[in-house]
């Protein structure tokens, strides 16, 4: 099984639009929407839910007002500022470390389970999909991403799918790391803006930190061709293959309004612009498929080598 993650550092570069497009091009893939914070892939793919499961995050401290004598030791000990002056817990600050439970001389504090989100398994018109909904202000989003990926792997086994397509979250923090670790290829999406380039650099720093083969692609390259050249030069210098330049096109918004992938939309929209855009996406996809195949062959090769080692 192969895994491809699509990330961008900066938000709004078109990760979900592109993932959705890939989903209508790939045969036999499972989708994993790992942007658990703002899960948008379902808006296009209209999943039919098979199963929902709660994700338990770190526990939450709870003070029993009957036992609490207001000594203030917990407030003093809590490093996260989660104990309020009136000896209640601010759930958005509590990290479930349990220091208060052992610090309290009256044994008034206990930890209670908290549901940090839900993992959902679904079926879409392009195949199975795993996605999630993170509870507002919850922190376990790296954990939830892992659960989505595990669910996607289960679905891939169940429906004998060969590929997992991961729609990644923005940023470079915990959820992104959870979304890319152990994948075979990462596609970093950029846009020709100062922030696009800046965030591309940070995203590539991250993928090289994890030593994952990385390819790049520029979206809306024609809104600033000079910046696009800068990105091209950067990719060349850092040895990141730049696979495609996607133009700025109304088709992306139009397709989204119709709740279709750009590939689906291009078929019936009849405009040459839409068809052209869809073709660039098709070419990009076949490039990616080739590379995924290459990485799998390399892996097989190194496995064969190992088998031959005395």
């Amino acid at each position: 099984m192969r895994q491809l993650a699509i990330i961008s550092g900066k938000g709004g570069c078109g990760k979900t639009t592109l993932t959705a497009a890939f989903s209508s091009l790939s045969e036999n893939a499972v989708l994993a929407d790992c942007d658990v914070d703002a899960s948008d892939l379902p808006l296009i793919l209209k999943p039919q839910v098979i199963k929902r499961e709660d994700c338990l995050g770190l526990k939450l401290a709870s003070i029993d007002p009957e036992l609490c004598n207001g000594c203030g030791i917990c407030l003093e000990m809590c490093r996260f500022g989660a104990v309020l002056e009136n000896f209640t817990i601010n759930p958005y600050s509590c990290e479930g470390c349990a220091v208060c439970t052992v610090a309290c001389p009256e044994n008034a504090v206990s930890l209670i389970p908290r549901v940090s989100g839900q993992v959902v398994s679904s079926i879409t018109r392009f195949g199975p999909m795993a996605h999630a909904k993170l509870g507002t202000g919850e922190e376990a989003s790296g954990k939830l991403v892992n659960m989505v990926r595990k669910k996607a792997e289960e679905l891939a086994d169940k429906y004998s799918c060969k590929l997992i397509l991961i729609d990644g979250p923005p940023g470079t923090g915990c959820p992104v790391m959870a979304a890319i670790t152990g994948t075979d290829l990462v596609l970093v999406l950029s846009e020709p803006t100062v922030s696009g380039l800046h965030d591309l650099k940070r995203a590539i720093k991250l993928t090289s930190h994890f030593r994952i083969p990385t390819v790049a692609c520029i979206n809306k390259y024609d809104i600033n061709e000079k910046k696009s050249l800068e990105i091209e030069a950067f990719c060349k210098n850092s040895g990141i293959p730049l696979l495609a330049l996607l133009p700025y096109a109304d088709i992306t918004t139009e397709a989204m309004m119709k709740e279709e992938t750009v590939i689906e939309y291009s078929v019936h929209s009849g405009t040459s612009g839409a068809a052209e855009f869809a073709n660039i996406v098709r070419n990009l996809w076949s490039e990616i498929e080739t590379r995924l195949l290459e990485t799998s062959q390399k892996e097989m090769y190194s496995k064969t080598l190992k088998a031959w080692e005395p």
Binding site: G11, D37, Y92, L134, T136, G137, S141, P170, P175
Partner: peptide
């Protein structure tokens, strides 16, 4: 962005 812990 988002509605997780850092944004909150």
């Amino acid at each position: 962005p988002g509605t997780a812990c850092p944004a909150l």
